[in-house]
Simulated assay, not measured.
Amino acid sequence: MNIRPLEKRDLPHIYRQKNSRSVMALWFEEPYNSFDELTLLYDRHVLDQTERRFVIEKDNAFAGVVELMEINTIHRHAEIQIIIDSKYQGHGLAQAGMKAGIEYGFNVLNLHKIYLFVDAENAAAIHIYKKLGFQEEGCLKQHFFAEGEYHDSYMMGLFSADFRAKQKVTVKAD
């Protein structure tokens, strides 16, 4: 697995993901963007310092995206999001991609905390996030609307010191 910055050539892959109702429901976002709209968004955000978008590759093929959003340099925190293409799910890429995004946030951007929102019923994602060290900070009741109904969402957070301590334990165990 490899991560690299999102580039304009990746937009056809993003377009496919952004137009999938089931994928966008996981991000609590509305599907159906035009390719022109996506291109305009890319051009507008490519220099935005409050976000970083990375492509996850497997064998030089597009496998997903991990994003650090709402990067706040004063409070040193950011939200993280990930989408793995359906044909690459179940191969450990979500955990590896999240770890790479977290490492970038803590080691390059000098963030203090990375947080995320996850559907309270998405047990597979919650399991991955907990393995990485995220802890539930609260439940937002009926906070997001997707697929015709309101969903509870957990807000989960990970502090830099906790992530580094967990990595040291993992390295010693190896």
Rank of each mutant, 00 (worst) to 15 (best):
Met155Leu: 11
Met1Thr: 02
Thr73Gln: 11
Phe117Gln: 15
Ala161Thr: 09
Leu132Asn: 06
Lys166Asn: 12
Arg44Val: 06
Ile82Thr: 14
Phe117Trp: 08
Ala165Thr: 08
Ser34Met: 05
Gly90Glu: 13
Gly157Leu: 01
Gln89Glu: 14
Lys113Gly: 04
Val108Thr: 15
His143Ala: 13
His112Met: 06
Ala61Gln: 15
Glu51Thr: 00
Gln135Thr: 08
Ala78Ser: 15
Lys131Ser: 15
Ala124Phe: 07
Ala123Gly: 08
Asp85Tyr: 02
Met156Ile: 02
Gln142Gly: 11
Lys131Pro: 08
Leu11Gly: 00
Tyr104Ser: 03
Gln81Trp: 03
Lys168His: 13
Glu137Ala: 02
Ile114Phe: 02
Ile83Leu: 13
Leu40Ser: 10
Glu103Tyr: 02
Tyr15Cys: 00
Arg16Cys: 05
Arg164Ser: 12
Lys130Ala: 02
His143Glu: 08
Phe54Arg: 02
Arg16Trp: 07
Gly97Thr: 01
Glu29Gly: 04
Pro31Lys: 01
Ile3Asn: 06
Asn2Tyr: 08
Arg4Asn: 04
Arg44His: 13
Val55Cys: 03
Gly148Ser: 10
Ile84Tyr: 05
Leu40Lys: 10
Ala125Gln: 09
Pro5His: 14
Leu111Thr: 00
His75Ile: 03
Glu137Trp: 09
Leu116Asn: 06
Tyr88Ser: 05
Gly157Trp: 00
Glu51Lys: 08
Arg164Pro: 03
Lys172Arg: 14
His112Trp: 04
Glu149Asp: 09
Gly138Glu: 05
Leu111Ser: 04
His143Met: 08
Met98Thr: 00
Glu57Phe: 02
Gly105Ile: 00
Leu26Arg: 09
Leu40Gly: 08
Phe134Gln: 09
Ala125Ile: 03
Ala61Val: 01
Ile74Val: 15
Gly148Met: 07
Asn122Met: 08
Lys166Phe: 03
Leu26Pro: 03
Gly90Phe: 11
Asn2Asp: 14
Val55Glu: 09
Leu132Met: 06
Ile82Ala: 14
Asp174Gln: 12
Phe159Ala: 06
Asn33Lys: 13
Lys141Trp: 14
Asn72Leu: 07
Leu140Arg: 12
Gly157Tyr: 01
Ala100Asp: 07
Glu121Leu: 14
Met155Trp: 06
Phe159Cys: 06
Ala125Gly: 09
Ile84Gly: 11
Ser153Phe: 04
Gln167Tyr: 03
Gln142Ala: 10
Asp152Cys: 10
Phe28Gly: 11
Glu29Val: 01
Pro5Cys: 10
Gly138Asp: 05
Ile128Cys: 14
Gln142Trp: 05
Gln135Asn: 11
Ala120Pro: 07
Glu103Ile: 01
Asn107Gly: 06
Gln49Val: 04
His13Ala: 08
